[in-house]
């Protein structure tokens, strides 16, 4: 771990075969690259803040999203109940994907469905597009046949993966929910079903009460907590999952800067994602990347790879 022997400024890495200029992704649903380009202009393309872009979760049909209110601020975090608004698969493939391809980073498309048959259609039609480098499966949704949240059940997760695995050679990433007692069991099931990677954590189930009435604040009744408030939970879960599976882990949950990003890498994540922090600073992802070389050097690492190979004592 001699300081300065290798180059901490070279952050290039790979994620199950996808070559990345650095380890910083965005969390699905926390940065709308198309809207950001409309607001800030082409600087968002030339100075794109992430090394890989993960789309918001796409569903079969267009969805309006949940009724307001959708946001509640908590100490060091927030609860959202956005409800996956979006154009649906056709709208995404026809309009959004073409625009997303103009960004010069690999593209991962997040998809969700409430039945295997729809997941199959989503994966088939997204994977066949050459703009797409990988697919993330958002499994925080009930299966209409069983009524069970897929990502909360190892058996459901494995069955889903086994159905989807033969459809494409592109990387399939399972986004794990933290709302289970033993996330590593779900992760192991995803791996044995053929997942190339797991990403975690999704938001932590949470609720807020209206300060002046007896209603719940969020239009949908409850939502998911994110931001630094969940970071310690995420670190514990990343650590437990990373030691149970051999596929790479995409770590996220309350990352605000290079130091907290490095904590996830030390806990076992191969790459990391910035979510809620994007709301506080549109360039948050870029600031994480810019701070990583110094953060690595400060802990005595000669390279990102060295930090990625650490096992915590």
């Amino acid at each position: 771990m001699a300081e300065g022997t290798a180059d901490t400024s070279d952050l290039s890495t790979d994620l199950c075969g996808i070559e990345l200029a650095g380890p910083v992704l965005n969390g699905s649903g926390t940065f709308d690259a198309i809207a950001a380009r409309r607001v800030f202009g082409d600087e968002v393309v030339s100075g794109f803040p992430f090394d890989c872009y993960v789309s918001k979760t796409i569903t079969m049909n267009p969805r309006p999203g949940n009724a307001p209110y959708r946001l509640w601020e908590t100490p060091s975090g927030m609860i959202n109940s956005i409800g996956l608004p979006g154009p649906g698969l056709d709208g995404f493939l026809e309009r959004d994907l073409v625009q997303l391809a103009e960004f010069d980073v690999p593209l991962i498309v997040s998809v969700m469905a409430d039945r295997v048959e729809d997941f199959e259609i989503l994966v088939n039609r997204v994977a066949e597009r050459e703009e797409v480098a990988g697919i993330e499966l958002n499994v925080s949704c009930p299966n209409v046949h069983s009524g069970l949240i897929v990502g909360e059940q190892p058996s459901e997760t494995e069955a889903l993966m086994k159905a989807l695995r033969p459809l494409t050679a592109k990387p399939l990433i399972v986004k794990l929910t933290p709302n289970v007692a033993n996330p590593h069991e779900v992760a192991m099931a995803a791996e044995s079903g053929g997942a190339d990677s797991v990403s975690m954590i999704n938001t932590v189930k949470a609720a807020a009460i209206d300060p002046v009435s007896t209603r719940t604040w969020l239009g949908a009744g409850a939502g998911g907590l994110s931001g630094p408030a969940v970071r310690p939970i995420a670190l514990a879960q990343v650590r437990s999952v990373a030691s149970a599976v051999s596929v790479p882990v995409i770590g996220m949950g309350g990352i605000t800067d290079a130091e907290s990003a490095l904590e996830f890498i030390l806990a076992g994540a191969r790459v990391i994602a910035v979510g809620t922090e994007n709301f506080r600073d549109p360039r948050a992802g870029a600031l994480v990347s810019e701070g990583l070389p110094a953060a690595l050097a400060r802990r005595g690492f000669a390279s990102l790879a060295e930090a990625q190979s650490v096992t915590l004592d």
């Binding site: 649903g29 926390t30 940065f31 709308d32 809207a35 950001a36 409309r38 607001v39 800030f40 918001k56 309006p64 999203g65 949940n66 009724a67 307001p68 209110y69 959708r70 946001l71 509640w72 927030m78 959202n80 956005i82 608004p85 809620t276 994007n278 709301f279 549109p282």
Partner: peptide
């Protein structure tokens, strides 16, 4: 006004119901 987390279209939190149905940011 509506509750806003980001201000630039990233969070989809600032939904306002449109006359034609659905929401705008």
């Amino acid at each position: 006004e509506s509750p806003m987390a980001c201000g630039y279209g990233a969070c989809f939190g600032c939904a306002v119901p449109k006359a034609e149905g659905g929401y705008m940011r």
